[in-house]
Each structure stands twice: as structure tokens, then as C-alpha cells.
Amino acid sequence: MSEPVSPLMNARYEGLVTIEEIGPMGMITLRGDLAATDLRRAATAPTGVEMPQMREASTADGKGILWMSPDEVLVLCAYADVPGTVQSMTDALVGTHALVANVSDARAVFRLTGANVREVLAKLSPADLSPEGLPLGEVKRTRMAQVPAAFWLESEEEATVICFRSVADYVMGLLKTAAHPASAVGFF
């Protein structure tokens, strides 16, 4: 089997924040009734984290569950673990109206680290990036300039951004521009 390759070959940029294209990362879309017991078990068993509440990102040790919509979560795991995880989740959901889909290769993931992560993201998105508008551990699905994106803050100095793989280069360009060392605003 060929080696998985992340879209930008783990590109890196240092400016107001450090931008790293991380990945490949395992991502599995799970859709169905999020209140159903077997669906919650299917999501929490392979990740070892709590089922997230509305808009929450429930993550630990590179694994996690992101709340995407009232009937959808995104399960995060190591790229190599995806086939096994998809199989075990599918087995756990036999007889339940649900969807399990491996979307790892359809997405690109960026990690932003530095004191200005809120500011860099706020330059690119109409979302409220204030600490009240986006508390730590809450996923924000929104757009960055012209493309859809989702991001969440692990801490005040670390954010993770997910976008479609086809626009990875565009998003990297956006982030580099917004993180240009001479472009500090100091709003947050």
C-alpha cells in the first residue's frame, strides 16, 4: 500500500503564530441520532473521551469527538487506526439508522500555536473569536475567507483548523497572510 501523504507535505510557517500542516489525521464522520445509546457508545469506545455536548470538542491524546451538527459528530483518531475503528463502529451500529464514513483523506488539518491565535483566525472568519464567543474546547464551524472551515482552541495559544483537502493550499496562504509578522492588531 502506498504511504499516506498530507496535502502540503507538513508545510510550516512562523509569523504571529506558528502554522503547521499536521496530518494525515484520522477523521470519521458519524451521523445519526446523537442521543441514542448505541451511537454514543460507538463514538466513545474507540476514542475514550466523553460524548460532546452541543458545539463541544471533546479531545484527549490525539483522539476526540467533535460536535458538528445536531445529527453529526466527527471522530478523530490516528490515521493508521481508521480502518479498524470504522469497522468496529459499523459493527456496533448494525440495525441502527446511522452513517459511518472515513473522511480522513478528504480533509487537511492545521495547528496554530502562539499568543495570537484568536487574532489570526478572527482576521479570516466572520465568527465571534472573543473568549465569550468561542470558549476553549468549543468547535466553530464557519468559513475562512471563501471556503468552509472548522476550528477549536485547545488553549489560548493553540488552535486546530480543519478544511477540505482541495483548498488546503488556499487556506495555508490565508493563514500565512493573516499571520504576517508586520500585521499584528492586538485586539484580543
Binding site: A127, D128, T142, R143
Partner: peptide, 11 residues
């Protein structure tokens, strides 16, 4: 009303 986000018109 589905996710509680105050969404901008452009979203």
C-alpha cells in the same frame, strides 16, 4: 435555532 450560533449573513 439548531446549533445556537449567532451566524453572519455570509455564513
Amino acid at each position: 435555532p439548531c446549533c445556537g450560533v449567532q451566524a453572519d449573513e455570509t455564513e
